[in-house]
Design a protein around this nucleic acid. Structure first.
Lengths: 404, 404
DNA sequence: CCATATAGTTCAGATTGAAAACTAAATCCC
DNA sequence: GGGATTTAGTTTTCAATCTGAACTATATGG
């Protein structure tokens, strides 16, 4: 869709403006509610007022930034024109999960302007059937955008599995029983200038947490779904590794003599802390995920020993994996999401204890938190990736928008 | 010393030239022996011939690049002027280790032009005493540089411990019994325009491997010294983590019920695969490192069961840690250095087996290798950091050189 | 010796930010 | 109420630096 600048591309004179457009736009995005003036942007970025004026003019003309009336900062002097990200440009976040589909309309500033979701037993369903249902939801989002006067720039689609972003292929999504499925995400938002970006669910949730949640620059996001996934955020960027598969927390080895795992290995975290493992250890075998989760929570509330032990064990082994991860990557904050967030209060004691036992003093307990975004985190992250790409490369967006 | 460009600095017109100077210089460095002409550089970088001519003129004037006579590429037409990194600019790499000190003079192209080392039982010695001995070696390197007509740009000093690069402080080097020692690395090479950069031994070894060894862009370097250290190289850059302490492979947890470790944790890799742990498990208690290593190697040669088991166990647990690391960071190649390189042939079977058991198919066995640089890897890496900083920011070097 | 091919230089033109002067719009204070 | 002051934003001039095209330099081939 948009070609990223090659790292070895020659510097041209025009690159300076590309960079400064992004710098100013990002500055406006970061300042958020306080709606900076051109003069404040100049002070904040180190650019001259003249340069900022010229850059802002381009951004306003493109529709990415809007002026929002006068704004008084100090007591004297001419008041500035407040600037903010346009609320008339949006991105559609979409999520396919095991038992539901959801969409959300997110504006440039990150506000969730519309959302909808439906239950859908997707496991084992053909990708085409799932995509057809999702297309219905996407149409709702487009209608909502029309109603609110929001122009849709693009979309993000998160799926619980390994994906090839470039080619729109789901390499493997074991929980959906999908294997090497070629989707057509573009069809969901026909005509959107930036298209639809396919992404991994855990990674999107991690990015949602980064941009619209806790907001730390460095943390490890742990997503306990059917599998145990993770997203590594370093320096406010997702670390995906040389092959794009980093963050596979679920298959870190937490016991050298542990049981065999579905991945072919042995002693993986997932065999101790995956949803299935916890349900099984707690003696809860029947029903949908939702039903079993409710049974488990009730059992924990009642203090049922098997349930408590199951969650304690999961927490302890999760602690082993996180201790190793913290040592290796020097990660100093951890955010729990998905199933782990739901189990938070029961999981934490064993987890914190295990971390302290294996990596004493390495991680401040107050940096071990539960995600507050719940299900919308993935949606926000999926949409956010497109929004960030615009903020980081506004020039490229202008081109894409002009061509369309 | 030289201030790195802030990530949020505004782009200025002059930045374009900074970047292109680096692009051209790096291009010359990469092309290596084949001594490219200006026209070839233009084709390779995407810059115009005019721009390359102008950039090369600056680089030649600064003494970083030299013309090396005519060079014929095709059959017809005017031959080009071959260009290469100057062999008259060098950096001194220095290393403090537990039982020796060493220095090396490395020219811009990465050739080791001179090296020397002395045995020195540094454990427990005062930093001042060690630095005084090292200064003697450094003086030899300077004399060698004078004799060869090499001008010294700066130096790199690697120590086996955690360091604060900026302030020249060794935060902790347990194997030397050093704790928060303020060194004065600058004194070793008084007057060198880029000063002396302090660095961690394992990290330097990893970088040495990157620039002058295997040359993969992504790998995990495992250094088995007294402790077990590591260096994570991703996208041809060292990953140091948000706090600068990434790569602490030795304290990854490889057994949830393992013995206590000196770090206060339990079940750490180091308690199974550290030098001391191996010596102890093999029943070798007395003597210097060198002597004990020789004893161990002889015992392995003889097939002594205790020694074989000690090394097998170390390999197996190392495999557990590396399997986890590979999952988490998606690392696809591993290079063994230090003690592990010495034990290579005895360690490999158990290590490879363990990796395959815990992360089957994840890592191609041919990507599990032993470093070929031996001891000079650390030296080359320490010097290389300064050399790379010049190649990546030639403009800043020009300024620094001009001020001196 | 001249056609041709390739290397490298020179020069006009375009883009862009810095610096400084200027205009615009508010408050302060008498 | 009106000038002084303060702050916001624009205009103008200038310098840096790349591109592109024309030009010069130097080789081979017939």
């Amino acid at each position: 869709m948009n070609e990223p600048a090659a790292p070895n591309a020659p510097g041209r004179v025009g690159d300076v403006r590309r960079r400064n457009l992004s710098l100013v736009l990002d500055s406006i995005a970061r300042t958020g509610d306080s709606k900076p003036s051109r003069a404040q942007l100049a002070a904040g970025t180190g650019l001259t007022k003249a340069a900022v004026s010229s850059l802002v003019a381009d951004l306003v003309e493109s529709g990415l930034v809007a002026e929002v009336g006068l704004y008084r900062d100090g007591e004297r002097g001419r008041p500035g024109q407040g600037l903010e990200l346009s609320s008339r440009r949006g991105v559609v976040g979409m999520e396919i999960n095991v038992d539901y589909l959801s969409v959300g309309l997110v504006d440039l500033a990150g506000n969730l302007r519309f959302s909808a979701s439906i239950e859908s037993r997707n496991r084992g369903l053909a990708p085409d059937a799932v995509m057809a249902r999702l297309a219905g939801l996407a149409a709702e989002a487009r209608a909502a955008a029309d109603a609110e006067g929001i122009s849709i720039m693009g979309g993000g689609l998160a799926v619980p599995g390994l994906v090839d972003e470039q080619r729109g292929i789901v390499l493997s999504a074991p929980n959906l029983h999908w294997q090497y499925e070629r989707l057509d995400p573009q069809a969901l938002l026909d005509g959107a200038p930036l298209g639809v970006r396919l992404s991994n669910e855990a990674n999107s949730a991690a990015l949602g947490e980064l941009w619209y949640g806790g907001g730390r620059p460095d943390f490890l996001y742990v997503s306990g779904e059917v599998g145990v996934g993770g997203g590594v955020v370093i320096g406010s960027e997702l670390y995906t590794g040389p092959g794009g598969n980093a963050g596979e927390l679920g298959h870190m080895v937490v016991h050298p003599d542990g049981p065999p795992c579905s991945c072919g290995g042995a002693g993986c975290l997932e065999t101790f802390a995956g949803q299935e493992a916890i349900f099984q250890a707690a003696g809860i075998a029947e029903g949908s995920f939702k039903e079993r989760t409710e049974l488990l929570l009730r059992a924990l509330d009642d203090g049922t020993p098997a349930a408590s032990k199951a969650v304690d064990d999961a927490g302890r082994y999760l602690g082993v994996a996180l201790a190793s991860a913290a040592r290796l990557m020097d990660v100093q904050a951890i955010v729990l999401g998905g199933h782990f967030a739901v189990l938070g209060q029961w999981l934490m004691p064993a987890l914190a204890g295990s971390l302290e036992r294996h990596a004493p003093g390495l991680l401040d307990p107050k940096n071990l938190t539960v995600s507050g975004l719940e299900h919308s985190g993935t949606l926000l992250g999926a949409a956010g990736q497109v929004i960030r790409s615009v903020i980081e490369s506004p020039f490229e967006f202008l081109l894409a928008a002009k061509l369309a």
